[in-house]
Write a protein that binds this DNA or RNA. Structure first.
Lengths: 217, 217
DNA sequence: TTAAGATAATCAAACGTTTGTTTGATTATC
DNA sequence: GATAATCAAACAAACGTTTGATTATCTTAA
């Protein structure tokens, strides 16, 4: 489906409001007011409120998919470099598109209420992401740089889960690390840096060869 | 605040519906129908829908707090045993109270819309949890069993985030591990076992002394 | 123990808003 | 002159909440 400029603007406003208040708590009148359009325009362009959020997922899923393909073309680097690049890229991606990410988290919490279209888009995207990560790990395993037993789905879940958790408990994070008085940009930078170093360490510890790895193989 | 049997039943029904559909998408008529009461009873007992969810958080926060205190009394064990016990206990706790946990996740996503009462209860609970974890780690560090540099808040965030992520993407998890045809109980058992072994490994790798730890100290 | 009186619980019905959506006329663009 | 975009207004349905009457439960004094 192709969307014109006006439709994309409506989608963008809806995304921001859905992220902040949730789908049900956001009225079409909220959206039309923020987007400076008439209430009837949402139905006119998308058909219904449900179709609007479907369009949102359609557009953003396509963008993320394209970005994933890009990442997969970063060859000529060592497996460990590629792992670090993938971790950094994923953290950057989520922080850049926090609103959409927030909407995804909300929708994931109601698997039943969700339209099949959204479910399929999300599952597809997550699987694509997992395959990319697996291919990098397997490469390192073939070269004998990584240990033979790596639970990639769980590592990926840990990565995403941690970033999500941090994002949805921002103020708690700032309290714990005593950075409440920093600007919002500085707080985010703190979180991003912390996440990147944290996961560089975790991935290193979880995929580097174990002492007995050469013996058992 | 004390609540009678009827109130606790309403809270329990509301909890289940809030978890499944979200606060805004759940109407008082939904709740009263499921709880087999008159619509006016919610206002009669709690005052309003907002006060109802506050009561829910009040009750559950108290329960969780009490359970945390219990956990802290498990002395006479080695620090590593206590870490494992804490990880297992936390995973069990979340899986047991999935509904409430789901509601917490939803509320965390709208920090602005939330009433201060809920925010404070959640922050308090999270801090209490963090302090418990820190005390165990510090004990291990004093004994020289754990490395000196452990980022406890990040480890805790990773633990919670991963469990959350897994719970909110259950069907994706089952697809990845090919256990869609198992019963729901078996699927949950699979997830719990996987989580526990995963985090035993992560914690081990992240807190055991590094090779150069004795040199730098 | 019982009758009377007070308090608590329950109910159907109605309240005024807000909801998503549609209509039909008007304006802009091609 | 046709198609697309925009608008104020209206629509029925659903919302949280209140009302006022009715029933159940408890309290208290004879």
């Amino acid at each position: 489906m192709e969307y014109n400029q006006k439709q994309l603007q409506i989608i963008s406003v809806a995304e921001r409001l859905f992220a902040a208040k949730g789908f049900s708590a956001t009225s079409i009148r909220d959206i039309s007011q923020e987007a400076d359009i008439n209430v009837s325009m949402v139905s006119y362009y998308f058909g219904s409120k449900d179709k609007l959020i479907e369009a949102l997922f359609e557009v953003r899923a396509r963008e993320f998919g394209a970005r994933l393909d890009e990442l997969l073309r970063d060859l000529g680097l060592s497996p460990m470099q590629r792992v670090n690049l993938m971790v950094d890229g994923m953290i950057n991606r989520i922080f850049e598109k926090q609103c959409f990410h927030n909407v995804v988290l909300r929708e994931q919490l109601s698997p039943d209420r969700r339209t099949p279209i959204i479910s399929e888009l999300l599952t597809e995207l997550k699987l694509k992401n997992l395959r990319a990560m697996e291919s990098i790990i397997h490469e390192g395993q073939k070269l004998g740089i990584f240990r033979s037993e790596v639970d990639v789905p769980m590592l990926s879940t840990t990565l995403y889960g941690t970033v999500n958790q941090l994002l949805s408990t921002k103020s708690y994070y700032c309290t714990v690390y005593g950075i409440q008085d920093l600007s919002e940009e500085e707080q985010e930078a703190h979180m991003i840096a912390k996440l990147k170093s944290h996961f560089k360490k975790i991935f290193q510890e979880m995929i580097k060869p174990e002492l007995n790895d050469s013996i058992t193989s």
